[in-house]
Write a protein that binds this DNA or RNA. Structure first.
Lengths: 304, 304
DNA sequence: CGATCTTACGGGATTCGTAAACATA
DNA sequence: TATGTTTACGAATCCCGTAAGATCG
């Protein structure tokens, strides 16, 4: 009892039920009248009974046709809606993208980028998690994120990593600090000065420690939030070393930021995605948009 | 943006979503694998986007495919249900017939007929109105009845009448009445005896009056219900003249029923239906069943 | 007789299955 | 290399439109 039914048959049926004329209904569905007649006949065979009583002068629904009409209209409408929904997704007029982005990028660089994305695709919902690298990866793994911008390279069978941008480090100190005016600033110059550091599990800290190794820095304090770091530096407790993308935190008249030579100390930002499944249409649009919006190599960070 | 979508495509989609393998899904829908592949491709083109991420090793729904799946399943299910319902109607396993039948037929003859009909088509609902001829016709005209068995011939552009059966008349009297034993009973013999009559708007009364015209009968009483007539006759108030199909009302030891000669006094029962619309499948089945169950010409009426 | 549905039929597009090519683990 | 999907292609089928036929008012 394998049946087949097409929306064309249903459209023809509905048209005929409305027009009560093969000729007019055929025109409505852009078919010759005999072809239309055959279409109705095929539907009646499928259904197993006559749906219309036709004489040369009048066309009327049979009792069975009346019963079928409501079903036919409902099925047709739902099919059309389903298809229209899919086409909206395909046309990127609707959809949803979930991002997991390092807080530094999320606060400084991302807002303008997403604003432009939203202007291009106003119907696509955005879900941004501004979390540390580790959490970014976890969200990707559990499917809560489509794309992640994180600082850790992941090479598992399920995740795919590609370089996104690199981020030079800058010294942050008070305007009156000796290093603020030193001509050729180098990493080694920092050893003599007390440092305000970020927490050990932050990617920034790991980059810094790796860069000076085996040398060690004088850590006067460990903090979680960069805005707190800014306050401490302003208070003269020490200097700090942060990626260029986070410099907007230190945009203050009392503070000076000075770039360090990129070689040796440069953190890499990666774009990570799942390997097993492709990107949704919306996520693909986001991917392309992100790739076209790479932050300037040594940018001082866009302000929100 | 004229779209077309067939249940075959939806079945293929659902099969592939379940099986996650073109080969297995193709087998499930009885298609060669390449043909199946083309079917999926056609659906994806219709929808406007990829629905499956396929590598040679794995087939998975895309994000869009996941969205489509629920719609596809719903549309497919509703289409199948609609078609199954129609086939049940066509197979006469379900349906509904509305009859309008003269009370005489409805009480005496119809029950056995409908019992057999119901045994043949247990899924078809029956709606019987046991009303007088006039009402039968009215129900037909307003669409509340599919078929009517009435005593009046109707020849309008909307109704079609065909003879169904004829019904001879019988005298009903008490066993001790003079007419009970009269050898050759004739219509003229009744003139001398007081009659219990039915109401003037009943078809029986009209037949009787027409048959004796221009002669007149002695009307001692007019009643609406035959069972009341039976009581009156038993009480010795008079005799009565009723169609054979109603004789079951007079099945009593004190009463005698005697047939009158059929010529001159015989009422015709007609089967009436609408002219504009055909019969539903169920009504057609009923029509054929009724035609095959014609009451015996001079039957004394089947007992319920 | 006229308007309208059905049947007949030839041409063209679609779809099928087999076989070969291609891709990934 | 083996499994499984896509491509290639000839054949069968289906579907369309034109033209002729049938039917009811």
């Amino acid at each position: 009892m394998q049946m087949n039914l097409s929306t064309r048959q249903l459209r023809a049926f509905v048209a005929l039920a409305e027009e009560r004329s093969f000729t007019r209904a055929a025109a409505q569905v852009h078919l010759s009248q005999p072809a239309f007649s055959a279409l109705i006949r095929s539907l009646e065979e499928e259904v197993g009974t006559r749906l219309f009583d036709r004489t040369t002068r009048s066309v009327e629904l049979t009792a069975e046709g009346v019963v079928f009409e409501s079903s036919a209209r409902r099925v047709l409408r739902e099919a059309q809606e389903a298809l229209a929904d899919m086409r909206e997704l395909a046309a990127r007029r609707r959809g949803r993208v979930s991002l997991a982005v390092l807080p530094a990028l999320a606060a400084g660089w991302l807002p303008c980028v997403l604003a432009r994305f939203h202007a291009d695709y106003p119907g696509i919902e955005l879900d941004v998690a501004d979390v540390l690298s580790e959490d970014c990866i976890e969200r990707l793994r559990t499917g809560r994120a489509d794309l992640a911008l994180a600082a850790t390279r992941v090479n598992t069978p399920e995740l795919r990593t590609e370089p996104f941008c690199s981020d030079g480090f800058h010294l942050v100190c008070r305007r009156d600090h000796p290093l603020a005016a030193k001509p050729a600033l180098r990493l080694a110059d920092l050893a003599a000065h007390p440092m305000i550091q970020l927490a050990r599990n932050s990617s920034v800290r790991q980059y810094v420690e790796a860069a000076v190794y085996p040398q060690q820095l004088q850590t006067v304090m460990e903090l979680d939030q960069l805005s707190t770091v800014a306050g401490m530096v302003r208070a003269g407790l020490g200097v700090s070393l942060v990626p260029a993308l986070t410099l907007f935190h230190f945009d203050h008249p009392d503070l000076v930021t000075r770039p360090l030579p990129a070689r040796g100390l440069k953190r890499q930002i990666f774009l990570v995605r799942r390997r097993d499944r492709g990107l949704s249409v919306a996520a693909q649009a986001m991917y392309e948009h992100l790739m076209a919006s790479l932050p300037a190599a040594h940018a001082s960070g866009a302000r929100p």
